[in-house]
């Protein structure tokens, strides 16, 4: 046990594992941030990720061009989100029901298509995945280089996406309007902000980001699609968004924390952490999120108009 803890490779493995676990959560969580900030609850993140992971794999399989696959994943994510948007914004349906339907659909659709295309259940054949990126210079630094110098591009993209999202939400006029629409749509409309347009944009964006998250699974960390490969990551991403108080950096922190819990769980044998049941580490994100909502650890309060369809005035 002591020898293990003294071994630097353990720490490298821990950081690498944390980043790997956190990346899809960060991307999907940012999607949740945009959608909910504009006032639309998107519990379809899970299903969108799954469909996007599949579509990305499919296009990469046929074109042998993994980046085209990524593009397809993003586009399909946005397309499914568009359905959610129309149902929720135009027809003012229950947003949770719509999200649930999309989640049900995603499992059926990907399973069906997997059999249709590959005549195979369970998983797809290996497909070309996007090549890892190495960061010049940093890669050369001992230990740090091994931790963050070489990763699948999705790791870096997710961090860049956090920075851009934060800039858009808090430093641009679009961001101001998004937040206004999610808090008090009527007030936004009386000053000429198009509530519907902003909400459509944000839901599409959330689909695109969840699509990228899906691509990270099938074309980044793995090079194939597996049935139900999202494994609830869409819901953990939602939890991270809540735990991060609906902000990009907060979501990033929450995802890293949740990813770290996951990494600990994976490495618990090596780390000699067997005294903590791994299941409790897996449960931690959910328990922390409930505690945050209940105000036990820094109350999380959702955007005021989140989940409420908007009716235009007469």
């Amino acid at each position: 046990m002591e020898t293990n803890l003294a071994d630097v490779t353990i720490y490298i493995a821990l950081v690498v594992s944390t980043l790997r676990m956190a990346t899809p959560l960060i991307l999907a969580g940012l999607g949740g941030v945009f959608s909910e900030r504009s006032g639309v609850v998107n519990i379809a993140l899970e299903g969108i990720m799954l469909i996007a992971a599949f579509m990305g794999m499919l296009i990469s399989h046929f074109t042998r061009a993994p980046w085209l696959g990524v593009l397809a994943a993003v586009a399909s994510g946005a397309a499914i989100a568009a359905l959610h948007a129309v149902v929720c914004i135009k027809y003012k349906s229950n947003q949770v029901v719509s999200g649930t339907a999309i989640n049900l659909f995603s499992v059926g659709f990907t399973g069906f298509m997997l059999r249709k295309v590959f005549e195979h259940a369970g998983q797809s054949p290996p497909v070309p995945k996007v090549a890892d990126w190495t960061i010049p210079l940093i890669e050369k630094i001992p230990v740090i280089g091994a931790m963050i110098g070489k990763h699948t591009p999705f790791v870096y993209l997710s961090l860049i996406a956090v920075i851009i999202s934060n800039f858009v939400l808090f430093k641009t006029k679009l961001g101001l309007r998004i937040r206004a629409v999610g808090e008090h749509p009527k007030a936004a409309e009386t000053v000429g902000v198009d509530v519907f347009a902003i909400r459509y944009l944000c839901v599409l964006l959330s689909g695109a980001l969840a699509g990228l998250a899906g691509a990270s699974l099938s074309l980044g960390f793995l090079s194939q699609f597996r049935e139900n490969m999202t494994g609830g990551r869409g819901f953990i991403a939602l939890a991270a968004m809540i735990f991060g108080k609906w902000t990009p950096y907060g979501t990033l922190r929450a995802c890293l924390l949740f990813g770290f819990a996951d990494a600990l769980q994976i490495l618990s044998q090596t780390l000699g952490l067997t005294f903590i049941p791994t299941d409790f580490l897996l449960m931690a994100p959910y328990i922390l999120t409930m505690a945050a909502l209940a105000g036990i650890i820094g109350r999380s309060v959702p955007p005021a108009a989140s989940g409420i369809p908007y009716e235009r005035q007469k």
Binding site: A180, E183, H184, A187, T190, A304
Partner: peptide, 10 residues
């Protein structure tokens, strides 16, 4: 308006 159209956290 009689009921203010202000966004509270802004």
């Amino acid at each position: 308006h009689q009921h203010f159209m202000l966004i509270p956290p802004f």
